[in-house]
Design a protein around this nucleic acid. Structure first.
Lengths: 156, 156
DNA sequence: CCTTGATCTCAACCTGACTTGAGCTTTCAT
DNA sequence: ATGAAAGCTCAAGTCAGGTTGAGATCAAGG
């Protein structure tokens, strides 16, 4: 075991590559927790490096911070998560990755069929089937691509 | 040929599933262009349904509106794009899809290796290799996941 | 002609994910 | 013991991608 198991915010930032301000922001959102020194400075566990790294990966997969918080809630409270804990948590990400790949493959095929052929009738081709939950959504209002009630892009 | 080749913004919205306000926003950003009636109302070409649909697809693939505008700039000015034009444009998307799939597959594998095994040493595993251009980025400052200069998440 | 629904412009507001700045305090190596 | 580096809080700003509202105008059927 390392002599110093508690690290300052700057070190956590350096180890994970995220900005100090971002870590404070994550703490405010409940994604990480910090102990405090007598003087009020944050001290993190080494295990939090892993936690922050998980946040980064999950973000890359398109999860919002809120969703990530929900995933992280699956980790044990009170004790440092072990390998098995992390495996369990990341299994969910694995499923998400598979779904995203599937959606992308479908999109690739349909791109050929729809745009390639010149019809681009998304409705017919199903590019926008709403089953398509896994499709990554960019920034901005989620409901734009998620809350449609049916009629999408049928070229007259 | 249809009797009315010009459509109102409301019809374009209905056909593509995007809000009227979003279409105006896209126009302001230069993604679509509109003719105007004597009274100042927008009139779009039927071909713009395809254009807006392309925007939607590209967005799903993680392109920003600015990037989409750049892609669309590859379409011929002055004449209605034909099938070949669209095919050319969407080939770029195809490449992007392939890259994203590859990145996702790599992430999936590494998730097993890194988090699964309990090390989560991103640096060693290369989850954050910067070659990884194709990886989708969520909202927020792009440089967070893109402008690193090297040292990322090495668990002490 | 007249009314009703669609459109228009412009400015303001919204969410997510952070960053920046001001002003002040804590740490820690020398 | 001290001074630079790092940290603290809180409010405000930023950026993308839109939405909302007010107040006014246009287009089309009856």
């Amino acid at each position: 075991m390392h002599r110093t198991d508690l690290i300052a915010i700057g070190e956590l930032a350096a180890r994970t590559g995220v900005a100090v301000s971002a870590i404070r922001f994550y703490e405010a959102k409940g994604l990480v927790e910090a102990l405090r020194t007598g003087g009020g400075q944050r001290r993190f566990l080494r295990a939090d490096i892993r936690r922050v790294s998980f946040i980064l990966i999950a973000q890359q997969l398109g999860l919002s911070l809120e969703e990530i918080a929900a995933e992280l809630a699956g980790l044990p409270a009170g004790r440092t998560p072990n390998g098995a804990d992390w495996t369990r948590i990341s299994t969910g990400l694995g499923a998400r990755i598979d779904a995203q790949i599937a959606a992308l493959e479908r999109t690739r095929e349909l791109l050929g069929n729809c745009i390639g052929c010149g019809c681009l009738s998304l409705k017919k081709c199903g590019l926008y089937n709403r089953e398509d939950k896994a499709a990554q959504r960019g920034a901005g209002p989620r409901y734009v691509l998620g809350d449609r009630s049916g009629e999408i892009a049928e070229v007259g």
